[in-house]
Design a protein around this nucleic acid. Structure first.
Length: 650
DNA sequence: CCAGTATCCCTTTTT
DNA sequence: GGGATACTGG
């Protein structure tokens, strides 16, 4: 009965954390305020379960990014021992992928299904859109991105396409018939080609369990304990999956903070977390409110920010730490002045021995940092940018990936099309003909060598044929295949892009990533599910500055992280919140939570900056007020400062 | 049927 | 101010 534990849990955790860690039977909801040691709690709980004798692989840890779960398991391993490495962990999407690859036959899926990333599914939707719009001159029909948004929202909120059109795109309601038709065709086409988009991964997993109770049973009993991190950012389907997985035993723990829910745009619903106790009767609820991250002046401000949220579990964060600096709201006369201010402050901090990687600049949207990036480069401050455009979204990387994808799935029309269009004198029609010839040949990707292709096109294909005859996935390593493709592609790259030197660096970067993989399928899956999160600039400055680099990040990508000093730029009303959301109370509330997330990243210093007199083309207004989330806050809590009264030299 | 040019649209965030 | 789409000339 008496259990001797290696770790002194009670001593190393605060009472609430401890309670959460030792509650290992039945449903548990932990409401974890920002900086309250959420990760610590999860980590210790993993260790505790393992110490209690739970088989590591029967613990399932679902997190928002795979990096987060790896990090936690690494820490748990450090805490206890390497049994913790064998804990099952990942994102909902990667977990779904794993299960579906194993049980694909149960729902009539091909083994080698391709995962469509956002761009891929938009491309497919684009093709269908073109087919369905018989009169191409039709005015004001949603473009493919918009269609993709509509479809995804419908799936994630479990609504019909028509509902979403009525709710969110009333100006397109006339077209709802065609939109639905495109959606049906899209669903059908995905089936035919063995494509799964992000949403499908979740939907198929859910259906798999619903329609096969035996399988649900064996899955739920193979996971004795389930822990879900960032529960506030799960959507309906994910919540359903969780409850299907929980099975009868319901050893399920959800951790989250309703105040930090920032993914409604992809169907997340922060009310999920409030409904958790209804879904699992008998849920023990524990709140973590002691903050170990920030100084009190920062918490005073963040408490005020979140107080303005219309709906929330109320909780007030506090710290035992004393002293600290008051957050500051800084007005600049223009964007460049804002950038110059950041640069100057950073140089100050560095002189005071704050290392660069302890400083972050956060913003609402990826492009908000463009001017700052130029200014940082001029001043030779190394930085890495997280969020915004992704490495795998740049067209040259997508080109390479297309060549690799057809090796796995020679029926991948989208990829064939992409790579064929790169060949001189081959356009839409020829590409289509060639693809169909390859299909007809039915000999995999090598069909391109043998298929009957018109003479005129054939001549230009010689280099491509040479490439595909050289590649043998049976013998060559992932990286060797990659090198062959890059070799082939370099002349195309130089022809297509003026900035090819930059892009060549990216290709090198891609090859170095490939080095880590033994299986091409695995590599391609990861590129779709867990693409490198850093943008193109990163690979450029990879060698310069080493690890000590300033962090530029979207607020979304900054979730869960913390820095000594945090700058939030573009805290300008109309930009943050964006003028788009100010008429929609729900969206506005989400923007507020986003501001809260940004502000709670800071440990010691917190600055907000905004340029004034910015023209907003969507409303035609001149923006010059600070964000409404920061405006009218007592200067005793948030200091105000204007750069205009000072003369800056450059 | 390709490729270069005109035009229109929409401006977030991510698995 | 940029990217995607539609149009048109060759």
């Amino acid at each position: 009965m008496k259990h001797k534990f290696q770790i002194e849990y009670e001593k190393e955790l605060n009472p609430s954390q401890y309670e959460a860690v030792i509650h290992t039977k039945g449903p548990l909801l932990v409401i974890a305020g920002a900086g309250s040691g959420k990760t610590r709690t999860l980590t210790y709980r993993v260790a505790r379960l393992v110490e209690e004798g739970t088989a590591p692989s029967s613990i399932l840890l679902l997190t928002f990014t795979r990096k987060a779960s790896q990090e936690m398991l690494k820490r748990a391993t450090g805490l206890l021992d390497n049994r913790c490495e064998r804990v099952s962990g990942g994102t909902f999407h990667s977990f779904a992928n794993y299960i579906l690859r194993r049980y694909h036959h149960r729902i009539g899926l091909d083994t080698g299904f391709n995962i469509l990333d956002r761009d891929d599914s938009e491309a497919l939707i684009g093709i269908i859109r073109k087919e369905k719009l018989n009169s191409p001159k039709q005015v004001s029909f949603p473009r493919k991105q918009t269609l993709a948004n509509i479809f995804s929202k419908a799936v994630n909120k479990v609504l019909t396409v028509e509902d979403v059109v009525f709710d969110d795109y009333p100006h397109f309601s006339e077209e709802r018939g065609t939109i639905t038709a495109i959606h049906n065709a899209y669903e059908k086409r995905k089936r035919e080609h063995s494509y799964l988009d992000y949403d499908d991964l979740l939907v198929y997993l859910k259906t798999l369990m619903e329609e096969h109770p035996d399988l649900q049973d064996s899955l739920s009993s193979s996971f004795e304990h389930i822990m879900v991190d960032e529960y506030q950012d799960t959507n309906k389907i994910q919540a359903d999956i969780v409850s299907l997985l929980a099975g009868r035993i319901k050893n399920i723990m959800a951790v989250g903070d309703d105040s930090q829910s920032i993914y409604a745009f992809r169907g997340a619903n922060f009310k999920n977390i409030m409904k958790f106790p209804e879904l699992f009767p008998g849920t023990r609820i524990i709140a973590l409110e002691e903050n170990y991250r920030s100084d009190q002046p920062i918490l005073d401000l963040t408490n005020i920010i979140i107080e303005r949220a219309p709906e929330k579990y109320s909780k007030i964060l506090f710290t035992r730490r004393t002293g600290g600096t008051k957050p500051l709201l800084v007005r600049a006369s223009n964007e460049n002045r804002q950038s110059a201010f950041i640069v100057e402050k950073i140089q100050d901090l560095v002189r005071n021995d704050v290392s660069l990687n302890e400083i972050a600049v956060l913003f609402r949207a990826g492009y908000h940092s463009f001017d700052l990036e130029i200014e940082l480069t001029r001043n030779r401050i190394p930085f890495k940018k997280v969020g915004g455009f992704k490495f795998t979204e740049s067209s040259h990387i997508k080109d390479i990936l297309a060549h690799l994808k057809v090796l796995i799935n020679s029926k991948d029309r989208l990829s064939w099309q992409r790579l064929l269009l790169l060949v001189d004198k081959i356009g839409q029609q020829t590409a289509k003909n060639i693809f169909e010839a390859i299909l007809e040949e039915n000999s995999g990707y090598s069909g391109i060598m043998t298929a009957k292709i018109q003479k005129s096109a054939s001549a230009h294909l010689s280099r491509l044929k040479e490439l595909f005859s050289k590649i043998d996935p049976g013998i060559m390593s992932v990286q060797e295949i990659g090198e062959a493709v890059v070799d082939y592609y370099l002349p195309v790259l130089r022809e297509q892009f003026d900035d090819y030197p930059k892009r060549e660096k990216d290709l090198e970067h891609l090859l170095s990533i490939m080095e880590r993989y033994n299986s091409l399928t695995e590599f391609l899956t990861d590129m779709a599910l867990e693409p490198p999160n850093t943008s193109i600039d990163d690979s450029l400055s990879d060698n310069a500055g080493g690890d000590d680099r300033l962090v530029l990040s979207t607020i979304h990508s900054a979730k869960g992280l913390e820095w000594h000093t945090v700058f939030v730029i573009w805290a300008l009303d109309g930009r943050f919140p964006s003028s788009h959301s100010i008429n929609n109370p729900e969206e506005l509330a989400e923007e507020l939570r986003l501001m809260y997330v940004a502000a709670t990243r800071a440990r010691r210093n917190l600055y907000f900056t905004y340029p004034k007199d910015v023209y907003d083309r969507s409303t035609g207004m001149i923006l010059n007020r600070p964000s409404r989330f920061l405006d009218l806050i007592d200067t005793g809590i948030l200091g105000k400062y204007s750069l205009d009264s000072y003369c800056y030299r450059f």
